[in-house]
Design a protein around this nucleic acid. Structure first.
Lengths: 252, 252
DNA sequence: AATTTGTATTGAGCTTGATCAAGTGTTTTT
DNA sequence: AAAAACACTTGATCAAGCTCAATACAAATT
């Protein structure tokens, strides 16, 4: 017997128009009618748990996914069990874009904590965007943004010191949490030191030492995953130069 | 008096359908009719000379550009005169994709030698792709490909040793030249050692030393910009591991 | 042809951050 | 509650690759 009072996940239908993330997410800038059309192809499934794969390298591309709560890392596994963390994703962010090229995922994605996502079947999205210029435009913008973000990361890995890398990392999360209505100075990082190091091209030990040093210098307070940024201006100075930003490596 | 026998650049109209790069370029996979429509919005201007900017960081996005001959580097200049080279582009490659997000170029592009390009006004392209699903699809694919390439570069900068970086660089050019009908083992690099180092996150001196060492080890012959790869298999071993690929830094 | 300027190579020494190793604290399993 | 597994921190040492410096070579300019 089906109990009408039981709310099953399949029945939970949070529409884009009611979603607090709409201004950060794919529907950004769409008219209410367009949003409704987009909404009709979006699927909202059951949540993933810490460590679950959202998809694996080599999987066929079925859907793009938007994080609605929780967080995710994307990474390219290598034969020998190692991996390169490509990025960490927060609510409102679209993942799977690198799979469009070959209709096959080029990286894996794993939930860092309990995580809910909206799935957008790519075939439907493509079709819909064909008849909805505003959606097509938004797709171009999001794809382009991803490229721009990757470029910043290239600069980080190519030119910045360990100190600058961690400061950049922390400020990036600060801003992203702020945009989502959370504190810019007090937050929990869902990933391990190991994953931070991997992402930033540093050894775990270096990350750990830097956290300790930053704390000694009064830049932040850290206790395990809980981070409180105590001096945003000084962190910004480390990242963007001025008296503090002592960058390695030469000019061209 | 206008001499009808003088061919001016404005009159040179190499259509996509006659272009040898069509299979690598934006029109890839379009039907002849669709290609014709795309062709109608493409502009072919006069060539750029070595050192000329195709566009600068901060310029408004007018057009995407495809290299038709020559080569280009894209880079983000930093206040202090330094720069991060983001990538080197060969004929058939589309540049300017990172500008779609803000309709403003996020990097600069400079010709490394005499270089010709096709310009595709983005506004027209977007409009056209709205009524041409195959073109929209191709745009999604190209944007996605760029993201995938950036990810590979992140792995290179985050995990690979200097040796692996240069070997990867050389094999990448080898393959790209081959795709364009040139020799995979004998080619000229149009960029300086400085630019190679910048791109690979290495000092010029390291690049120079590696070229010397690779030559001593019989992997290649190099004289200034002229490179001859003598042992592709061994270069591949450096890049993709096996007995040779001694990579720094740990697994997760 | 000679000078200047820019680019590449080579050497010596140093620094940043990796590696190795041990120890502490936390979480999960039994 | 104890044990095991895991994550993080801290210390000591080492090396890859950067910096500085000198030189060689090529291209451009006079």
């Amino acid at each position: 017997m089906t109990n009408r009072n039981v709310v099953s996940f399949e029945n939970i239908k949070v529409a884009c128009k009611n979603c607090s993330l709409a201004t950060l997410c794919l529907p950004m800038g769409l008219s209410p009618e367009d949003m409704e059309r987009l909404d009709s192809i979006v699927k909202r499934g059951r949540p993933f748990h810490r460590g679950d794969h959202l998809f694996r390298e080599g999987d066929n591309l079925h859907s793009l996914r938007v994080i609605t709560s929780g967080s995710v890392k994307t990474f390219t596994p290598s034969e020998d069990g190692g991996e390169q963390v490509l990025s960490f994703h927060l609510p409102g962010e679209l993942i799977g874009l690198d799979a469009i090229q070959n209709e096959c995922h080029a990286c894996s994605a794993k939930a860092l904590e309990t995580t809910a996502v909206c799935e957008i079947p790519f075939h439907n999205l493509e079709e819909l965007s064909s008849s909805m210029p505003s959606l097509q435009h938004q797709m171009y913008r999001l794809l382009s943004r991803e490229i721009g973000q990757d470029s910043e990361m290239l600069t980080l890995l190519g030119k910045k010191s360990a100190e600058e890398r961690l400061a950049t990392f922390l400020l990036s999360f600060s801003e992203r949490f702020k945009k989502r209505g959370f504190s810019a100075t007090d937050f929990f990082l869902s990933m391990s030191r190991h994953e931070i190091g991997n992402y930033l091209g540093l050894a775990v030990e270096t990350v750990s030492r830097l956290f300790t040093r930053f704390q000694e210098e009064g830049l932040l307070h850290v206790e395990r995953k809980h981070v409180q940024l105590l001096d945003l201006p000084r962190l910004a100075t480390i990242v963007y130069g001025n008296e503090n930003g002592r960058s390695r490596q030469g000019h061209l």
